[in-house]
Design a protein around this nucleic acid. Structure first.
Length: 804
DNA sequence: AGCACGCCGACT
DNA sequence: GTCGGCGTGCTC
């Protein structure tokens, strides 16, 4: 009976987002399984393409002619049933293609692509396609893509096959991928009898060989050449002769690349009463069937110890756990705590791993060796076999929302997984997201509050400085008088200071004093930032760098000035005012090279500097005992962007940064500079009043029907052709109006985005508010249909964190 | 997305 | 008569 497999092909085009059926050849029938990746011929040219099997069935007759599967890639299926279901969930919830969903849950770099290897045979008296034949002859063997590059034009496949049919060339097709299983050559005993004889009968002349052989014999595991020569202090020639004599044999062994080099140990702490109560509370509510617990705990309340304890409880019962932290706090310190406590059953996944390292951690997890995965956003897809516990630390963090298709939110995916597995999700934050706290207040989540710090330390006092008053009093500098004197007092006392400003570079914009012209990026609608380190103007959106013009491009005046302040400017001002102070700066620019982040962190931690200046990067996860002063240079930089989360974001940022002060024995102090001291974000955050902020903000959200009371769908429309884009938005607006008729959805726009152009592409958006999931499919259909044969690209993002 | 087919105009 | 331009439609 013919066997048919349904395959999802590795091509992200929306029209190919369906199952394609292939015959399973006789010799594969026994080994083919759902979830395996296969190679199939596809399209008119029968190009080889990778696919994923999602269904296998026996069929008696089939009216359509089917092609056959070429090859099976994975012996063991890469995806099990629950992973396939997860992919389907992502597709349905975030409106992506199934293959995009699969690619999201598998490690990057293991997809293979067809490679055509062309081999020259003979050119006889061939006259056609002379240039191509000559090039192939020159290289003898060359791959197709390289050949096209060399000749600087795309050779039609038909020409290639003509050449093959005429006997000029041979074509070999292979499937090639970037990441391969890493192998090492190891030696082990080939014939134990022979070895014994050799040792007994050989003369002293072969002393070194005997000694080396004994070492290999006594080793429990096969040894690499390096290990052997190290242990017996011999050269490779000794090993080679043993191999030649047939006493030992060489073979290849698969190994895992290990991203964590150090061995850590990390002890257990006695839990405080609060911590113990929290654990009991969570377990109890879990037993009652609550899938999600939210820990609202002030900074320094010892959440990590609670997490460690919960993980320990679950792995003792034989379950697996995932612990997620924001990318930025996935420092060696965090890894250390988990690896030190649980040892080798911990795997680490984060963006700084190479594709190879990630693939190996992934395989290690899948094999069942790993019980606990610690990682950033994408670690939610770790292929553990028995996930029962997921912890999301700092659950309010924006990095949990993916910016790439599928634009998933980690919290939502985690909820899906615990619901599927009857598991438990623990969310933790000192400033929970509006969404989560709302659900907790309404009883959907179990809520636990911890309002005391472990050491009973008080939260730092925050004094709010109105910068308008400073200006009135003749202080034009970026430091208020109070901040200035506090810094200088701290320097005298030998205590450390953190200065926070959420902007990198020197100036925030460059403008002509004579005509007011502001220098902007030619590709993006963004003012350029001056960087002292490079001496250039840089666009923070496309990365393009410009030389500083001597004259104004518009009016030719020479009065070009830098306005606004970034971290580089703060550094310069501090250097000017406090000549003896040792200063460190931490932002994207100073941490580009690998390990720089760590280095700055350690320098400051070891008290080798007085002042640390930084952006977002220093706002979380960092624990410095000697920091007693935190200066927030401008608290309101994010307050007035057109985004419904602006207030929430500002509150969270101020709370996070303030938390850096007074983590040791000495009390901390925070000086918050702002132009809007009366704004409720500033008022509540300076009083450490999360509940107060929540109550105010939730009423605003309710009144304006923003999340959590609605869902917001941002329809971003982009094109390099501005006129076509504007015409398109008008047209699509009517279509959208048709779709939402009679549904509980409101439409705003179309309007140009706050940042009108990025990387040469103009941007408009339409915002839908309300029950957007109801219209998602229809909307996707009309956008897809109407953008065919246009220059318009579109993207749909639900409850986006990036509305500008 | 990629590729082949096909219909039309320009040119040896 | 044929080469190559791009609009159209299909991929198991």
């Amino acid at each position: 009976m013919p066997m048919i497999a349904s395959v999802i092909v590795n091509n992200t085009a929306k029209v190919l987002d369906k199952e394609f059926e292939y015959y399973v050849p006789e010799n594969m029938k026994k080994i083919i399984k759902r979830g395996q990746r296969v190679v199939v011929p596809f399209g008119k040219g029968n190009n080889f393409i990778e696919g994923i099997i999602i269904d296998i069935k026996d069929v008696i007759n089939k009216d359509m002619e089917l092609k056959e599967i070429i090859d099976i890639i994975d012996d063991v299926p890469l995806f099990n049933d629950s992973m396939i279901n997860l992919a389907m969930f992502l597709k349905q919830k975030y409106n992506c293609t199934l293959i995009e969903a699969f690619k999201t849950i598998m490690p990057s770099g293991i997809n293979s692509k067809e490679k055509l290897i062309i081999k020259f045979l003979s050119d006889k008296n061939y006259v056609k396609n002379k240039k191509i034949v000559e090039a192939i002859k020159k290289y003898n063997t060359i791959d197709y893509n390289k050949l096209c590059n060399v000749l600087n034009f795309k050779i039609p496949k038909s020409t290639l096959y003509d050449l093959k049919n005429d006997g000029i060339i041979a074509i070999d097709r292979i499937m090639d991928c970037r990441v391969k299983v890493k192998k090492v050559e190891v030696y082990s005993i080939a014939d134990i009898k022979k070895c014994d004889e050799f040792i007994k009968n050989s003369s002293q002349k072969l002393k070194k060989q005997i000694e080396t052989l004994k070492i290999i014999m006594s080793s429990e595991t096969p040894l690499t050449l390096k290990e052997i020569s190290l242990k017996s202090d011999c050269s490779s020639s000794v090993v080679k002769s043993l191999e030649k004599k047939g006493l030992i044999a060489k073979y290849e062994k698969e190994i895992y690349r290990n991203p964590v080099k150090n061995n850590y140990t990390f002890g257990k702490f006695e839990l405080t009463k609060d911590q113990k109560n929290t654990i009991d509370n969570i377990i109890e509510s879990y037993k009652k069937g609550k899938r999600v617990s939210l820990i609202y705990g002030v900074t320094g309340c010892g959440k990590t110890e609670i997490y460690l304890n919960a993980v320990e409880n679950f792995i003792k019962m034989g379950y697996d756990a995932i612990v997620l932290v924001p990318e930025i706090s996935l420092t060696p310190q965090t890894v250390e705590r988990f690896k030190g406590r649980f040892g080798d059953v911990v795997a680490v996944l984060h963006s700084r791993l190479s594709d190879g390292e990630r693939y190996d951690e992934w395989r290690r997890i899948k094999s069942g060796e790993v019980k606990v995965v610690v990682g950033a956003r994408s670690a939610i897809f770790a292929p553990l076999n028995n996930i029962k516990l997921i912890i999301i630390d700092e659950e309010h963090e924006y990095s949990y929302k993916s910016e790439m298709t599928p634009k998933y939110h980690t919290r939502e995916v985690a909820e899906y997984i615990v619901n599927e597995n009857n598991g438990l999700l623990i969310l933790g934050s000192a400033t929970p997201s509006m969404e989560s706290y709302y659900k907790a207040v309404n009883g959907e989540y179990n809520l636990i509050q911890i309002l005391k710090r472990v050491d009973n330390m008080k939260l730092p006092d925050i004094s709010v400085i109105d910068m308008r008053e400073e200006l009135k009093n003749g202080n034009k500098s970026m430091f208020s008088r109070e901040l200035y004197t506090s810094i200088s007092d701290n320097l005298k006392k030998g205590e450390q200071t953190i200065l926070f400003l959420n902007r990198r570079g020197y100036s925030t914009f460059v403008s002509c004093r004579s005509c007011g012209y502001i220098l902007k990026c030619k590709n993006c609608d963004v003012p350029l930032t001056y960087h002292v380190s490079s001496g250039k103007l840089s666009c923070h959106y496309c990365g393009f760098e410009y030389n500083v013009p001597k004259l104004c491009p518009k009016c030719q005046s020479k009065y070009i000035k830098y306005f606004g302040a970034g971290t580089e400017k703060v550094e310069e001002e501090i250097k000017k005012n406090f000549k003896d102070a040792k200063i460190l700066r931490m932002d994207v620019d100073t941490t580009r090279i690998k390990g720089a982040h760590e280095k700055i962190y350690n320098e400051f931690k070891n008290n080798n500097a007085d002042i640390l200046i930084g952006t977002q990067m220093i706002s979380k996860g960092m624990d410095f005992k000697n920091v007693t002063l935190v200066g927030i240079i401008a608290a309101d930089t994010n307050l007035n962007v057109p985004d419904f989360r602006a207030a929430e974001r500002t509150f969270q940022l101020v709370s996070q940064v303030s938390g850096r002060a007074g983590r040791g024995e000495k009390a901390g102090k925070v000086i918050l500079q702002t132009y809007e001291p009366e704004h409720y974000s500033i008022v509540f955050s300076s009083n450490h009043d999360y509940i107060g902020f929540y109550n105010k903000e939730i009423e605003i959200r309710r009144a304006l029907n923003y999340p959590p009371f609605s869902d917001i769908l941002n329809v971003l429309l982009m094109s390099e052709d501005e006129n076509e884009l504007i015409e398109f938005t008008k047209k699509i607006k009517n279509e959208v109006n048709n779709i939402i008729r009679g549904r509980n959805v409101e439409v705003l726009g179309p309007a140009p985005c706050h940042i009108y152009k990025i990387k040469k592409s103009y941007r408009w958006h339409i915002i839908l508010k309300g029950k957007v999931y109801d219209v998602l499919n229809d909307l996707n259909y009309i956008l897809n249909y109407n953008t065919i044969n246009t220059s318009i690209n579109y993207s749909l993002d639900i409850n986006s964190y990036n509305m500008i």
